[in-house]
């Protein structure tokens, strides 16, 4: 919160909080939006110089804005060179528990028949098995393991969401990038001559590749 503590408590204020997603303005669900817009304008005016432009998030809860209300909000913020980069980071999290900490789960296997081509992206909560290749420019994202029964040349992200036990297996492992949980790695520039099934997993804080 940036508001000086000396302010009288009875005066209504809007709350700014630094969340993981960024600085967020909280607009309560009670009262009219017009009321809060006035409060915001006064508040920003008093805190002049605190905001030197920048982008914020706005948390509205269940409140729906009319186009006019939204325009009004943008106008007030624009005076202080503040941009809105998104809405409802808190509400979203509530509705979408995926972004919350969650036990590494394998809920199912997505079987892909054929090649995943450049520009195609497949996601699955659980494992992904491809009966074909993953081509450069193609992307697989699984919360569990990824198995490619062909050549893996694109981007594979296993254990998305934090499962560090996830593995990536391919008959030919020649990826642009490997990602397991939060760890990213590029393949060494020259990996010719290494053919045959390989497995990638996390060891320590690194992704290691071994022959299967």
């Amino acid at each position: 919160m940036f508001v000086p503590a000396t302010r009288p408590v009875h005066e209504e204020q809007l709350v700014f909080k630094g969340l993981k997603q960024g600085l967020t303005l909280f607009v309560p669900e009670r009262d009219t939006f017009g009321h809060w817009l006035e409060v915001l304008e006064r508040q920003l005016n008093q805190a002049k110089g605190f905001f030197q432009g920048g982008a914020i998030l706005v948390e509205l809860g269940e409140r729906q804005l009319t186009p006019d209300e939204l325009a009004g909000l943008k106008k007030v913020l624009a005076q202080y060179r503040i941009r809105i980069k998104g809405f409802n980071p808190v509400l979203r999290k509530k509705n979408n528990p995926r972004s919350e900490k969650r036990p590494p789960a394998s809920t199912g296997v997505l079987l892909v028949k054929g090649t995943v081509r450049n520009g195609q992206r497949l996601e699955n909560e659980g494992d992904i098995v491809v009966k074909g290749d993953l081509n450069p420019g193609g992307e697989l994202v699984a919360t569990g393991d990824i198995i490619v029964l062909g050549a893996l040349r694109g981007i594979a992200h296993a254990g998305a969401g934090g499962n560090v036990k996830a593995e990536i297996i391919a008959f030919t492992l020649a990826p642009v990038q490997l990602r397991i949980a939060h760890i990213f790695s590029r393949a060494p520039e020259e990996r010719k001559g290494r053919q045959g099934p390989e497995i990638a997993y996390i060891k320590g804080e690194k992704i290691v590749v071994e022959r299967l």
Partner: peptide, 10 residues
């Protein structure tokens, strides 16, 4: 070839 691959997907 990359672009061709994308086109085949499309």
């Amino acid at each position: 070839v990359r672009d061709a691959d994308r086109i085949i997907g499309l």
